[in-house]
Nucleic acid binder design. Structure first.
Lengths: 340, 340
DNA sequence: GTGAAAGCGCTAACAG
DNA sequence: CTGTTAGCGCTTTCAC
């Protein structure tokens, strides 16, 4: 089945290449009769334009890159990435873009991948999941004057478009909820301190406490890295400070922390309450169900793709910021039903 | 920063386009002096060849498509997909291929995506995750004479290359283990009956039982769909038949089943033992740790990519089959430590 | 409305 | 070893 070309279709339809091209691309200026005839030939022959040729001539690749750096182990277990990926994939489909996936685990990966993504001609635009201090991949990409949308607030936000939730408000909300329930020693398990996400959530924790005239006790703050194991160890560490409630910067860490609490003979939520962050469906649902902040990760994907396509179509111009909304989901782990 | 072309480099280096092309593509037949000079110009200018042009001229896209159909909900929660994806991504990186990700949730998605993947020129080859009866996407793809490698045994295996484990042997192994431990009423939670994976594992279950002269009791077999919830409900159903051990066709289903068992007041493994399948790291590790069959999902990715590249380079010819090895991992949930 | 013609930037024979 | 010469299949002015 030798592949057909525009030329072949043109011949069969008795028109010129240009006309077929117009029909294929849905341009105006084609009479209904001709359009119909051409369309029929295309349908009956099963013709599809050659993407490489189209890309070369139009200087567009119709491909969006999703770049996920530094995530080897987390990508495996955190439901965040599959959700984001799925959201992006779905949106790409809808807009007739192809999704290129670039997982960058090591510096070498980055060097290998960079030329392939930094260049217009292979990609029309880039979605970059990040939010790490000193993540100079962002700068490199911005300098390459590719349209780029960051998922998560970048540390240097000047001139870049990004999409995020208001992590500070959301975290503040979560902690305020615990305060309202009457907890006195509210601990926090943060993410890595070089992640903007974690920084913002920690700020929310501080704000909630100070707004109510409370003091932040550093003994009640422990750092994790968004893995279950890190939540577990952070909690073991926190146990000495005897928290009666814990706000974890992610659900997964909250689960690890709950495991540590139980191991220490504490009941959840009677002896220690938990609130997490994310509210993504987990492979095995926790018991008790987790009170948490819901963020629309799947929707991030769609929204990010739309911003990006807009930048691709209309030039980069002023950076866009989209802040999506979060929601406190009250379940058992915070003890709300017991305390009210 | 107007992008440079081969021509520009040729001029600056005082050679012809072809020579630069040869250098870029690492061909022989270039004198060391010239090569060095050209390389230097390329380095100093930061030149990168235009992929679209290269693709058009060479009739290669240097892109591999990973196609995952019918997986909307499972993709979210089952660690299988992130692992596979990561393995494929890593391998693509290594071999200088770009990875295109195509998630197909609905029939409409399929129609939209198909033209983009079935055509040489957008993709050099396809990796298709599947194994469903009547999955006619396989046939369509095979007919499009694209190089295709299936991940998982396809139902009609004639003429297609695929990579899989021996699910039958592995399942037989798992169940034999339970038999050796002395369990009398060994149940199975299967996957959907239209999945080859599940069919094979069920066959292994049957074989293990009949090999030991046991009869298969249909009351001890329940169907799930690889989700936690389905494991839970399957187990609730099985409880009536009072199994003393359960082999689940996936870890996630085993976890759901364990949840149901506990809810019914049964202890694991004292009252009912469990063996799963997969052994992929989970966001929140189960308690007790799961005895399971380990399959090298991450490695599937690498192996599949290598077969595919071989097919791309050397033509499709005879279909390849790669069967990777599995391993029984004995932990607590099967009660081995109690019974021995 | 439609066609002719000039590329898009690169690869790959083919000469020399 | 190197340069010349055709394309790859499509888009897009520019005439008519």
């Amino acid at each position: 089945v030798a592949d057909l070309t525009l030329e072949d279709i043109a011949q069969k339809a008795g028109v010129s290449r240009s006309t077929v091209s117009r029909v294929v691309n849905g341009h105006q200026n084609v009479s209904d009769g001709v359009r119909k005839r051409v369309l029929e030939v295309i349908r009956s022959t099963g013709y599809h334009p050659n993407p490489a040729a189209r890309n070369l001539a139009s200087q567009r690749s119709w491909m969006i890159g999703l770049v996920i750096p530094r995530s080897v182990s987390v990508f495996f277990t955190d439901p965040y990435f599959p959700h984001l990926t799925q959201g992006v994939a779905q949106a790409c489909n809808q807009h007739d873009y192809t999704l290129g996936l670039f997982l960058i685990g090591t510096k070498e990966d980055e060097e290998k991948v960079f030329p392939r993504i930094s260049h217009r001609g292979s990609l029309d635009g880039i979605l970059l999941q990040t939010g790490q201090i000193g993540d100079h991949l962002i700068d490199r990409l911005i300098n390459s004057n590719m349209p780029v949308v960051i998922v998560g607030r970048p540390f240097h936000a000047d001139g870049v478009s990004y999409i995020d939730v208001n992590n500070t408000d959301a975290a503040c909300n979560a902690v305020s909820h615990l305060i309202r329930l009457g907890y006195q020693r509210i601990a926090m398990i943060t993410g890595p301190h070089n992640s903007t996400t974690s920084i913002d959530r920690e700020e929310g924790y501080h704000r909630a406490l100070t707004e109510r005239g409370r003091r932040v006790d550093e003994a009640l703050v422990a750092e994790g890295d968004f893995t279950e194991a890190s939540g577990y160890y952070a909690m073991r560490h926190l146990l000495a400070a005897k928290p009666d409630a814990v706000f974890a910067a992610s659900d997964i860490m909250a689960l690890g922390a709950m495991r540590a609490a139980r191991e220490a003979g504490l009941r959840v939520p009677q002896d220690v309450a938990f609130v997490g962050f994310d509210d993504l469906p987990l492979a095995n649902p926790p018991d008790p169900p987790l009170t948490t902040i819901r963020q629309p990760v799947y929707q991030f994907g769609g929204a990010a793709v739309e911003i990006l396509i807009d930048m691709i179509d209309n030039g980069i111009e002023p950076p866009r910021r989209v802040i999506m909304t979060t929601e406190l989901i009250v379940r058992e782990s915070c003890g709300a039903s017991l305390r009210r």
